[in-house]
Measured scan of single mutants.
Amino acid sequence: DLPPEQWSHTTVRNALKDLLKDMNQSSLAKECPLSQSMISSIVNSTYYANVSAAKCQEFGRWYKHFKKTK
């Protein structure tokens, strides 16, 4: 379990794929700090720029909290 400071584009993509087993992209976009188009691009590997470090950390913090509450 990585601390949010160490999250990267790959970590975010893997976490998104895991979350999308249980929910669809639009529900996920309402919950998490990423937009639906960004989620779609990341999981389909069409998001060519890497997600910014700040966004990765924000998502990492959100993901840890989300997993605790589920």
Rank of each mutant, 00 (worst) to 15 (best):
D1K: 08
D1V: 03
P3M: 14
P3E: 10
P3R: 08
P3V: 14
P4Y: 09
P4A: 11
P4W: 08
Q6W: 11
Q6N: 08
H9Q: 12
H9C: 15
H9S: 15
H9M: 14
H9W: 14
T10V: 15
T10H: 11
T10Y: 10
T11V: 07
T11F: 04
T11G: 06
T11K: 08
V12C: 07
V12P: 15
R13E: 12
R13M: 04
R13K: 13
N14H: 04
A15Y: 02
A15H: 02
L16F: 01
L16S: 01
D18H: 14
D18E: 14
D18P: 04
D18Y: 12
L19S: 01
L19Y: 02
L20W: 00
L20T: 03
K21R: 13
D22Y: 12
D22N: 10
D22R: 09
M23C: 06
M23V: 10
N24C: 03
N24I: 01
N24P: 12
N24Y: 02
Q25K: 12
Q25F: 14
S26I: 08
S26M: 13
S26L: 11
S26W: 07
S27M: 14
S27R: 08
L28N: 00
L28K: 01
L28P: 00
A29G: 10
A29C: 09
K30S: 11
K30R: 09
E31I: 13
E31M: 05
E31V: 15
E31Q: 15
E31W: 03
C32T: 05
C32A: 04
L34N: 01
L34C: 00
L34M: 08
L34F: 14
L34D: 01
S35H: 12
S35N: 09
S35D: 12
Q36P: 11
Q36N: 15
Q36W: 06
S37L: 10
M38H: 08
M38R: 04
I39T: 02
I39Y: 00
I39K: 03
I39G: 01
S40K: 11
S40D: 14
S41C: 05
S41R: 14
S41F: 09
S41A: 10
I42H: 00
V43P: 00
N44F: 05
N44R: 05
N44Y: 03
S45Y: 10
S45R: 13
T46N: 15
T46V: 08
T46E: 12
T46Y: 12
T46A: 13
Y47E: 09
Y47C: 13
Y47I: 13
Y47N: 15
Y47L: 07
Y48L: 11
Y48K: 11
A49K: 14
N50Q: 12
S52K: 06
S52R: 02
S52G: 08
S52T: 14
S52C: 05
S52N: 06
S52Q: 05
S52F: 01
A53W: 06
A53Q: 14
A53P: 06
A53I: 11
A53E: 08
A53F: 11
A54T: 14
A54D: 09
A54F: 05
K55A: 09
K55Q: 09
C56S: 03
C56W: 05
C56E: 01
C56Q: 01
Q57V: 13
Q57E: 12
Q57R: 13
Q57A: 12
E58N: 02
E58A: 02
F59V: 04
F59G: 00
G60V: 08
G60M: 09
G60W: 06
R61D: 07
R61K: 13
R61S: 11
W62L: 03
W62G: 00
Y63N: 03
K64G: 08
F66G: 04
F66W: 14
F66H: 04
F66S: 04
K67C: 12
K67I: 12
K67W: 05
K67F: 05
K67V: 09
K68Y: 07
K68P: 05
K68T: 13
T69Y: 03
K70G: 13
K70Y: 07
